[in-house]
Design a protein around this nucleic acid. Structure first.
Lengths: 200, 200
DNA sequence: CTACCTTTGTGAATCATTTCACAAAGCGGT
DNA sequence: ACCGCTTTGTGAAATGATTCACAAAGGTAG
């Protein structure tokens, strides 16, 4: 598969969400025009995005909603569940554990770590917060697909290094630092203050 | 000012953060090469980004750190403080209120709203959660610069409409929906599940 | 079977962003 | 004052993403 722009992937994700809404409303088929209207883009963009992966529509008719949902799930790798470790049991971490959107979309948080003795041992949503020092011991038994880093800036890089050493290939980083990782590891950094800055 | 790409703005924000680190370490001047190294980009990119707004460096020498910090703050509009209203006092909202990064970067949360009677009246970080129905009454007195929407998907659009009617020109949206607003209002949507999806 | 209407899929054209590459400029040493 | 080293600022080239526009295909009705 040739490489596809991140912006395309984001839009495919969006289409999937919209299609699931259509499906819930019992709508059986949808045109690129209709999808674009809901998604704030253009019909040509929708068709081009899909065309990177094949042709899923019927000319004159549009796309079958359930069929396209299935295709998009496969394209985005959402036809399976992912095991996620959460590193950092602060305020944001706590919000993420309870956030239903993750589980709904196939991401299961299966382990939580922190360095703070006051937090270690506490139960969060049925999971015990574990000591960060046991990261290697725990994660070599329990295989995870990705990690979410929610730590202070200075703790992020060392933890990222340890995760990489454990074979983790995808990290979602909420710490306001640029992480340095080998190029076969994907890092996505979300910086909340930065989002506000782009608005101002 | 001619229009500048959002990607440029994001990088400028990143440079500013890095420069503040350099400043804290007492480093007086920095080259585009050094900035690029820390920021995961290239020196040409750094220079091009800055060149949209003027020329701030000295050939052969580089950029004065404190000077460039000041310039970037001005460019990004971070040389003043912003009054922010938080709509939705759920888990994520609660995390955001306590998130120091916002205040540090010049964003002050000055009002919190929710519809849940169990939450209304509670104190959060020195602020009382107010009834969403009083949005208009409160915000016509207390002028705000931007709003952060942290509500369930179905509540987001009506609230966005009310905020727009109140003259709010910038909204940071955490609800997983595409908001419909007039084109003079800037909306930035952050979808946490979507970030994980682009990793998978 | 044909005419007509609709909507896809996709090259080509346009528009945007990034990278290249180099002249101009600042500094230090002699 | 001149030379050599460094680093900026910026047109030009290359690359990437979006939009256009239209032939091909599917459906329906007569």
């Amino acid at each position: 598969m040739r490489k596809v722009a991140e912006s395309t992937i984001r839009r495919l994700s969006l289409y999937l969400r919209l299609l699931e809404e259509f499906e819930a409303q019992g709508i059986a088929t949808v045109s690129s025009e209709a999808l674009a209207g809901r998604g704030g883009t253009t019909s040509a963009q929708v068709r081009k995005d899909l065309s990177f992966f094949g042709s899923f529509g019927k000319r004159g008719l549009g796309y079958s909603v359930p069929e396209l949902v299935t295709e998009l799930r496969a394209i985005l790798g959402l036809d399976r569940r992912y095991q996620v470790a959460l590193i950092g049991a602060g305020k944001i971490g706590s919000a993420l554990v309870q956030y239903r959107g993750f589980r709904q979309r196939g991401f299961d948080i299966v382990a939580i770590f922190d360095v703070d003795p006051a937090k270690i041992g506490r139960e969060w949503n049925g999971l015990q917060v574990q000591d960060s020092r046991t990261l290697e011991a725990v994660l070599s038994k329990e295989k995870i697909d990705m990690a979410v880093l929610v730590t202070p800036a200075e703790a992020a890089q060392p933890l990222a290094d340890r995760l990489v050493a454990l074979g983790v290939k995808a990290i979602l980083n909420f710490a306001p630092v640029q992480l340095n990782v080998p190029h076969d590891v994907v890092v996505k950094t979300v910086n909340l203050a930065l989002e506000l800055e782009t608005l101002s």
